[in-house]
Amino acid sequence: MRTNRFSNALLAILSAMLLNSLPAQAQDMPTVNLVIRNGHFVPAILEVPANTKFRLVIKNEGPGAEEFESVELRKEKVLAPGVTSFLIFQPLKPGTYKFFGDFHPETAQGQMVAK
């Protein structure tokens, strides 16, 4: 029983240490912003750092739901109107990657350029 309490206390301490280190790591990560407005991505061309893990913050300012999707990048995120969310990208090789929105496929088109 005493060993069990010690194990639980140790687990709690280690968990707290891990959780306290996560925000610092996230704050150090480059952030790129993208807005979805009236079925369009703003900006339509995003420049992101190549070979660097980064966060993409997406805000849907439109009146309806919209999606960020990229087959090449294997990422997708559906956002309700007025919602802001994010995706974490592992380091990308230099190049251009297309993304789109399923709810407005004719206008919600964009490119991510890793430099």
Rank of each mutant, 00 (worst) to 15 (best):
G82S: 04
T31V: 15
M29Y: 02
L22F: 11
R74N: 10
L79H: 06
N51D: 14
K77Q: 07
P43L: 09
L92T: 05
Q27R: 14
N60M: 07
K98S: 11
T96W: 00
G95E: 01
E66A: 14
F6D: 15
K75E: 06
P49N: 07
M1G: 15
S70M: 01
A12H: 08
P49F: 05
T96E: 13
P63F: 06
F100A: 08
E76S: 11
P23N: 09
S7D: 14
P30N: 06
L11Q: 12
H40Y: 14
V113E: 00
M112R: 01
P91T: 03
G62W: 06
N38I: 02
Q109M: 06
V57G: 04
M17T: 10
G64Y: 04
F103I: 02
N51M: 09
P81W: 05
I58Y: 06
N20F: 14
R74H: 07
T96M: 05
A12R: 09
N60H: 07
M112E: 00
V113M: 03
E76G: 04
T3K: 15
V48Y: 13
F86W: 05
A24Y: 12
L92R: 04
V42E: 15
L10F: 12
M17Q: 08
L10C: 12
M17F: 11
H40M: 12
A12S: 13
R2C: 10
P94R: 10
F103V: 02
K115W: 01
A24R: 13
S70T: 03
E106W: 02
V71L: 05
A24I: 09
A108H: 01
M112T: 01
S70C: 02
V71W: 01
E72Q: 12
S85T: 04
L46K: 11
P94Y: 13
A80Q: 10
S21T: 12
K59D: 06
L56R: 10
V42T: 13
P91W: 07
E47W: 00
A80S: 09
V48A: 14
V71F: 03
A114T: 03
S85F: 04
A80G: 03
T107R: 08
N60G: 10
M1K: 15
